[in-house]
Design a protein around this nucleic acid. Structure first.
Length: 136
DNA sequence: GTTCTTACA
DNA sequence: TGTAAGAA
C-alpha cells in the first residue's frame, strides 16, 4: 500500500485547506484542538494538512450541515458513515486523474472540481469518497 | 503576505 | 465562532 503515504502526505497549508473546504481558519484549528484532524507541522510550526485531513474536514463539514455538534461528530468519526458522490462530479474527477500526475496538478484538479460545485450542494460530492480517486 | 497562539466579545 | 494583538 504505497498509496497510503500519498494520502497521508502533508502538503496543504491552512490557506489552501480554507479554500478547499470553505471552512474558516478558526474552525479548522478548533477541530484540530479537538482531535478531529492531526495535521503535521513545518519547522516554523505551520500546519501541513494531508489529503486525508482535507477529506476528514469535508466529512466533518457535512455532519455540521446536518446539525451535529462536536460531540456528535466525534462519535460519528469513529463509526464512519457512507457518503454518496454524484456521478456528475465523479466522472470529471476520475477522468482527470493520472497515475503520473504531480501533486501540483492533482491539487489543481481537485480545486477546480471543488470550485465548480454549487455552493448549495456543498460537499456532498467530495466527502469521504474523495480519497478513493487517489488509491488507483 | 501568511500563519501561529492567546484571549476577549 | 469571529476577531484583535503581537510574534514568527
Amino acid at each position: 500500500m504505497g498509496d497510503e503515504i500519498r494520502r497521508n502526505m502533508a502538503l496543504f497549508s491552512i490557506g489552501t485547506v480554507i479554500k478547499l473546504t470553505e471552512l474558516t481558519a478558526r474552525q479548522i484549528r478548533y477541530y484540530e484542538a479537538h482531535g478531529l484532524v492531526q495535521p503535521a507541522r513545518t519547522e516554523g510550526n505551520q500546519r501541513l494538512f494531508s489529503f486525508n485531513d482535507v477529506d476528514r474536514l469535508l466529512i466533518i463539514k457535512s455532519y455540521l450541515e446536518k446539525g451535529l455538534n462536536m460531540a456528535g461528530i466525534k462519535e460519528m468519526l469513529g463509526l464512519e458513515a457512507p457518503v454518496t458522490m454524484d456521478d456528475k462530479m465523479v466522472a470529471p474527477v476520475a477522468k482527470g486523474i493520472r497515475k503520473d500526475m504531480t501533486d501540483r496538478e492533482l491539487r489543481q484538479l481537485l480545486k477546480q472540481q471543488i470550485m465548480m460545485s454549487k455552493p448549495g450542494s456543498s460537499t456532498s460530492l467530495i466527502s469521504g469518497e474523495l480519497s478513493r480517486f487517489f488509491i488507483n
